[in-house]
Simulated assay, not measured.
Amino acid sequence: MGGERKVFTLAEVSEHNSPKDCWLVIDGKVYDVTKFLDDHPGGDEVLLSATGKDATDDFEDVGHSSSAKAMMDELYVGHIDSSTIPTKVKYTPPKQPHYNQDKTQEFVIKLLQFLVPLLILGLAFGVRFYTKSA
Rank of each mutant, 00 (worst) to 15 (best):
H40N: 05
G63F: 11
T84I: 13
V46W: 13
I109E: 07
E45V: 01
V25K: 00
S49D: 15
P97M: 06
D81E: 10
T56V: 08
K88I: 14
T84A: 11
W23C: 04
L37Q: 06
G52N: 07
E45T: 11
D57T: 12
K103Q: 12
C22I: 09
P94L: 05
K35A: 12
T34W: 01
D57G: 05
G28M: 04
V108Y: 07
F107N: 07
L47N: 03
S14H: 01
T92S: 03
S49Y: 11
K103A: 08
Q105F: 10
H98Q: 02
E60T: 07
A70I: 11
P94M: 09
T56L: 09
L24D: 03
Q96R: 07
A68R: 15
A68W: 11
H98C: 00
L37E: 07
V62Y: 14
A68T: 14
V46H: 06
D27Y: 02
G63H: 14
P97C: 01
G63D: 13
L111R: 09
I80L: 13
F36Q: 02
V30T: 04
P93Y: 02
L24I: 15
L47Y: 04
F59N: 08
L47E: 07
H64A: 08
D32N: 14
G78W: 08
D44G: 06
K35W: 03
S82V: 14
P86F: 03
P41T: 13
V62S: 05
H40G: 03
G78K: 07
D38E: 15
A50I: 05
